[in-house]
Write a protein that binds this DNA or RNA. Structure first.
Lengths: 336, 336
DNA sequence: TCCGGCTGTGAGACCGTTCCCACATGAGAC
DNA sequence: GTCTCATGTGGGAACGGTCTCACAGCCGGA
């Protein structure tokens, strides 16, 4: 039942464990006879090298940790972050890394410390990590990259979308399609991406000479569907009065929540109100009507993150900081 | 930069590594003076025990592997399986397990073998694993549990929903609300849950004396949104003619796809057609109109799976096979 | 003939823990 | 005064690999 060891193989093959090791790793000399015998035994005994023992001597586990911060529940199943995780999993496998996925709550150091005990080769930090957690991790001296984090930290590889540009794309699309009374639902401004999307949008609107008054902006506490729905329900008065012709929400969840409320009030989208979101989560395309949004390439974020992390781990000389990802406007049924 | 070792601590504290080890583990004797000194050094040097070395001697890694099978892309981000993974992650952390998440494609042994090399303490298999993969894993002698797998395997702990009962709930709900012309979209019948949901539904309908003719059933190749949409678009003729008053799809994705198509044809839901899904993924509640469905407690599945796996790992004498989870009908806007 | 290089092999240190065992000290029982 | 027993400590094997080193043959060239 127990896993056979290299010693076991050596014993049966009548050679030393050094020889077996050499044959397995393929470096150093070995005679064809020894090779055949050992290889046959490996097959027969279903020998699987013990990665723990290997890690012990090589000081490399070939494991990496993914840390997600969670406040509002969804984590792996989050429609956006889940996509990043998926891409990481796939890309990591192709580079022979195994991935610990872990979700840090209540901003403790617990998961991070845990990953350190496990001696991961590197870390990927996703979403909003508190600054103190980042400082804590930095002290370990383990390579890490951030993905779509809440803030930029100097010198840290940070994979992000060109969110400001994305905001601009939205403004452009809405103004070009004739909207000038736009309501904005701005997600948590403490988060880099919500902030920049909002900023990019506002800047571009100002440049177009279209005013977005203070009253037309609502700041959301969270970036959830429920929050979008709530905000819209509280704004129902002005909307019924025809004050606005379009809505921009800084992420899809907020946009969909808002849409849901409007549809329940029998508002026709896009005939009466146009809606634009941001992220292009799967559900954006599935909603009825489907949501016009800005695509953030979560898959590419995941792939880049582990590619860069791998370079850091292997200590490649000059790891290029990645360029920000290009957002892309996706026009669907919710705008006209 | 390098992590301090127990030896380092011992040297600085002027004691042997045995003593340090004893103090850290808390078993065996140690003097208060030694304890103070060692504990202070641990704090000062930020000593973190090396889990790799620990695993080496204890033959327990405290790592578990989660294997997901993926054919159609979504994995961690899958609205249903992602929920299970989330619950696993949380529950595992509370039992001090770290979790490797891995996604097996093209039914290879690769991920499974990889997990074995990493010497995980146990495995959780989610969704459709091919029988040969299961056999392969069984040979390792590593404890594992299945969650919502495609087939029941004898003697294997398998955490599933009472899908047949769920199908019954749907039939009951639809007949009670006066529907007798029901169209069914049945997901892949090779998958246990789709099959049982369908079977439970049909059995109950037959008992109610309401016929569901062959022509009113369409079998889906996959269980995706796109498939639901496609199937409905191909059935548009009969629907337009008013042939059916309700739809039951064996999961939410299929149901939502179907609804999306109907809404695009300006069909009013539920006034003209009622729709019922199965799973209660997050989107079901968010869709407009929100979807009546049967809730499958993915969170509970995740929690049970690691609880049971832990018992298997710790070799507790009699691990009770879990009872199937109770499904619950959730009536929302899509039915009347 | 001797020497150097290539081929093939095994002994043993090492990675960072845990744990068993030996041993030393002091107190209390007889 | 010896014999326990509790307390405290350190040495060293073991876990399963990798890797360095020493060494033994053999061949060819000087």
């Amino acid at each position: 039942m127990d896993n056979p060891t290299i010693k076991e193989i050596a014993l049966r093959a009548g050679v030393s464990k050094s020889t077996v090791s050499r044959i397995i790793s393929g470096k150093g000399y070995s005679s064809p006879e020894a090779r055949d015998k050992v290889l046959a035994l490996i097959e027969e005994l279903q020998y699987k090298p013990n990665a723990v023992a290997r890690a012990m001597v090589s000081q490399r586990t070939h494991n990496i940790g993914v840390l997600l911060y969670r406040r509002d529940h969804p984590i792996a199943s989050h429609p956006f972050y889940g996509k990043i995780v998926d891409a990481i999993l796939l890309a990591a496998a192709s580079l022979n890394y195994s991935v610990f996925v872990t979700t840090d709550h209540d901003m403790s150091y617990r998961s991070a410390d845990f990953m350190m005990e496990k001696r991961v080769d590197g870390l990927i930090l996703i979403s909003r990590l508190q600054q103190n957690v980042i400082d804590h991790i930095t002290k370990f001296g383990v390579p890490y990259v951030m993905v779509n984090g809440s803030t930029d930290v100097d010198g840290v590889i940070h994979i992000v979308n060109q969110d400001e540009e994305g905001g601009r794309l939205v403004a452009e699309h809405l103004t070009r399609t004739g909207h000038d009374r736009i309501f904005v639902i701005a997600g948590p401004q403490t988060h880099r991406s919500h902030h920049l999307r909002f900023k990019g949008f506002m800047t571009c609107m100002a440049l177009s000479g279209i005013e977005v008054p203070e009253a037309a902006v609502r700041y959301a506490e969270t970036s959830t569907f429920a929050e979008g729905y709530d905000i819209m329900s509280r704004q129902w008065g002005p909307f019924r009065a025809g004050r606005y012709s379009a809505i921009f929400a800084t992420n899809d969840m907020l946009a969909l929540g808002a849409m849901k409320f409007l549809l329940e009030q029998s508002v026709r989208i896009p005939e009466q109100i146009s809606v634009v979101g941001f992220d292009d989560i799967d559900f954006a395309a599935m909603f009825a009507p489907s949501l016009t949004t800005v695509k953030v390439d979560a898959g590419e974020m995941g792939r880049q993150s582990i590619k860069l992390l791998d370079q850091l781990i292997r200590q490649e000389p000059n790891v290029a900081h990645p360029s920000q990802l290009q957002p892309k406007l996706i026009v669907r049924q919710s705008t006209k």
